[in-house]
């Protein structure tokens, strides 16, 4: 890994100042960024650790839903969202392994927007709001393709607010070696309809499967999507799974998520 200057602010304001420097990069749990830097695929001049920013940590229920600080670890979300939003807690509890879950954070996952990451599907399916030091971004506007988001240079995610669905579940098919989602589906049932978000499948990153949303809004049962066809066009096609295989997984996992929703 190339060397860098390390800074560890304790407030969002100081983190924003540190991020204004040339070649600065935010570091959250580091479970993706540090391996990326070791492989020399990233070489920031300044690394701004967010692990010491207390105001970016924690889970609490407010008027707009469940608010999760961006620097909150997967393990903390798994424990603290258990009663209020079980679908989200279960997703968090399935990321990586216990050691990774003790470091990795929701903000880091969303800022990176890996096409096979789990969290983007929950954020998109719940219609969550991404809060940054500058503004609020609706989930539908936030994800802009593989590793691409609406975040601007130097912008830091501070928290995410989730409207809590009546029922929800996330089901993924693990890529057996990496434990990333080969494909994963988050289903969220609200009073005014159902939202379905798919990760790990499309070349364009996480997306909403709108045909399934319409079918499930009319009838929230696994059988409701049985007649739908998922096109393999634009699906990821690699040695772990063909585009057609992933397209099929989208439907299979959606059915399983509907069955599992609670």
């Amino acid at each position: 890994m190339h060397n860098f200057e390390f800074v560890k602010p304790s407030t969002v304001a100081d983190a924003v100042k540190a991020m204004a420097g040339s070649g600065a990069q935010a570091l959250s749990g580091g479970q993706t960024l540090l391996p990326t830097m070791k492989a020399r695929l990233a070489a920031p001049a300044v690394l701004v650790s967010l692990t010491g920013v207390a105001e970016m940590k924690g889970v609490c229920m407010g008027d707009d839903g469940l608010s999760v600080g961006a620097a909150t670890t997967h393990a903390t979300v798994a424990a603290e969202a258990r009663k209020s939003f079980a679908g989200l807690a279960n997703l968090a509890n399935g990321i990586g392994d216990p050691a990774v879950r003790n470091r990795g954070t929701i903000g880091g996952s969303l800022a990176n927007n890996d096409p096979a990451a789990c969290y983007p599907s929950a954020v998109l399916a719940a219609g969550a709001t991404v809060h940054t030091n500058m503004r609020k971004i609706a989930a539908d506007d936030y994800f802009q393709g593989m590793f691409t988001t609406a975040l601007k240079e130097g912008e830091i995610i501070t928290s995410v607010t989730f409207p809590v669905p009546h029922k929800s579940a996330y089901v993924k098919f693990n890529q057996p070696a990496s434990r990333f989602a080969l494909t994963g589906v988050f289903v969220a049932k609200f009073a005014n309809g159902v939202r379905v978000a798919v990760t790990g499948a499309s070349n364009n990153g996480v997306f909403r499967w709108k045909e399934a949303e319409a079918a499930l809004s009319a009838n929230f049962a696994a059988g409701a999507v049985a007649g739908l066809v998922v096109s393999p066009k634009d699906m990821i096609n690699d040695l772990h799974g063909t585009a057609a295989y992933r397209a099929n997984l989208v439907k299979v996992l959606t059915k399983r998520a509907v069955d599992a929703a609670s």
């Binding site: 479970q31 391996p35 393990a75 003790n102």
Partner: peptide, 29 residues
Amino acid sequence: CETTQCGACAVHLDGQLVKSCSVLAMDAA
């Protein structure tokens, strides 16, 4: 592995299990 995969480097950091190859020493100060 030094790539956050194998767990041989696991330690407890403030009581939490972590892979020490994926934590910067300065972050653990």
